[in-house]
Computed example of a mutant assay.
Amino acid sequence: MIITVGQVLFGYLLALLYNFFLKRASGIIRTLVFFPVVLPTVAVALLFQKLFEFAPQTGLVNSILNAFGLHSVDWFGTAGHAFIVIALLDIWRSMGFYGVLLYTGLLDIPDDILESARLDGASGIRLVRHIVFPLSLPVLVSSLIFSINGTLKVFDSIYALTGGGPGTSTTPLTLYMYSTSFAGGQYGYGATVALLLTIMCLIVTAFILRGTRSDAVKD
Rank of each mutant, 00 (worst) to 15 (best):
Gly69Tyr: 05
Thr198Asn: 08
Arg118Lys: 15
Thr58Met: 14
Ile109Met: 13
Pro40Val: 10
Val73Asn: 09
Gln7Tyr: 06
Pro40Ala: 12
Gly167Phe: 06
Leu51His: 13
Phe133Ala: 14
Ser94Met: 12
Thr170Ala: 06
Tyr178Ser: 06
His81Gln: 14
Ala79Glu: 11
Pro172Met: 08
Ala191Ile: 05
Phe54Ser: 14
Ile148Lys: 00
Leu114Trp: 11
Val141Gly: 07
Lys153Gln: 05
Ala160Trp: 11
Val5Asn: 05
Ile28Ala: 14
Arg129Val: 06
Leu102Thr: 04
Pro110Ile: 09
Leu14Gln: 01
Leu88Ser: 12
Phe133Ile: 08
Phe52Thr: 10
Ser136Glu: 02
Ile28Leu: 13
Ile203Trp: 09
Gly96Thr: 00
Cys201Tyr: 01
Asp156Ile: 01
Asp219Leu: 15
Leu14Asn: 01
Gln49Glu: 13
Ile91Gly: 04
Ala45Ile: 05
Phe155Leu: 09
Ser63Met: 12
Lys218Tyr: 15
Met177Gly: 02
Val141Arg: 05
Ala122His: 15
Leu65Asn: 08
Gly163Trp: 06
Ala87Gln: 07
Gly190Thr: 03
Asp74Ser: 08
Leu114Pro: 09
Thr192Leu: 11
Leu60Thr: 15
Arg24His: 00
Thr4Lys: 05
Arg118Met: 15
Pro172Asn: 07
Asp74Thr: 04
Tyr98Met: 06
His71Asn: 14
Thr41Gly: 08
Ile2Pro: 07
Ile208Gln: 02
Ala160Thr: 03
Ile29Asn: 04
Thr174Pro: 03
Pro166Leu: 02
Val193Leu: 12
Ile203Ala: 13
Gly6Met: 00
Leu195Arg: 11
Gly6Thr: 03
Pro172Tyr: 03
Ile29Gln: 02
Leu65Ile: 12
Leu175Asn: 04
Asp215Met: 15
Ser147Asn: 00
Ser169Ile: 08
Thr104Lys: 02
Thr58Asp: 14
Gly184Leu: 07
Asp90Pro: 03
Ala43Leu: 15
Pro134Phe: 07
Tyr103Ser: 10
Gly6Arg: 01
Gly188Thr: 05
Pro36Asn: 09
Thr198His: 04
Cys201Ser: 12
Thr212Lys: 06
Arg210Ser: 03
Thr168Asp: 08
Leu114Glu: 14
Asn149Pro: 01
Thr78Asn: 14
Ala160Ser: 11
Ala194Glu: 12
Ala183Ser: 10
Val33Ser: 06
Pro110Phe: 09
Ile64Gln: 08
Trp92Gly: 08
Gly96Leu: 00
Trp92Met: 06
Thr151Gly: 00
Met95Arg: 11
Tyr18Met: 02
Ile203Cys: 10
Thr31Gln: 02
His71Arg: 15
Ile148Thr: 03
Val42Glu: 05
Lys153Ala: 06
Leu102Ile: 14
Val5Ser: 03
Val141Met: 03
Thr170Asp: 01
Glu115Ala: 08
